[in-house]
Amino acid sequence: MDRPQVVTENYANPVTCLFHVLFKAGALVFYILFSLFVKSFVIIFVITVFLAALDFWVVKNVSGRILVGMRWWNEIDDEGNSVWKFECLDGEALARMNKKDSWLFWWTLYLTAAAWIILGIFSLIRLEADYLLVVGVCLTLSLANIVGFTRCNKDAKKNIRGYFEGHAQNAITSRITSTLQSAFGVI
């Protein structure tokens, strides 16, 4: 079944990979099938959005840090400013991450957002404002995770380069956290 590879490397965290994909697929499948065969909008909305929210939480809090060693969240500091935090493991731990896990993580993230965009276009063509609401919520959740982890990934790459350089000097860098003032934070 699989594409032949020079190196046979299995997933390091198959259970986490399963849950990472399960809720995404569940939301998409429920939305497509139920909108074709079941005409109750309330049921479609509640189940689809619930699965999308569950997927958002799992990716942000569990599979993100297990599969690619990253996490992001927002805090409000003592001065009342909004601070976005992006956290990743140190260079040595990142270097030991499974390549296949990382590949699955990023590709499913992008493909899910693309799928919701396509479904949104269909709803727009058929002039169904109700279903556009469902797609809008699910797409917002997907894009939030993509933006968050993309920023984490930039720091992770810097961390790996730092580890590579530090490794040459027998030094190991520690965890890194970068911050970004929220665009909505007003001073």
Binding site: W73, E75, I76, D77, D78, V83, K85, E87, D90, D155, K158, N159, R161, G162, E165, G166, T173, S174, R175, I176, T177, S178, T179
Partner: peptide, 24 residues
């Protein structure tokens, strides 16, 4: 909320970030 975030705007690519404990 007591962690002190370090803002690194446009850090040089070759630089190594300062290690800091971030227990949010």
């Amino acid at each position: 909320g007591a962690s002190v975030p370090i803002i690194v705007p446009q850090a040089p690519p070759a630089s190594v970030s300062v290690p800091i404990a971030s227990d949010g």
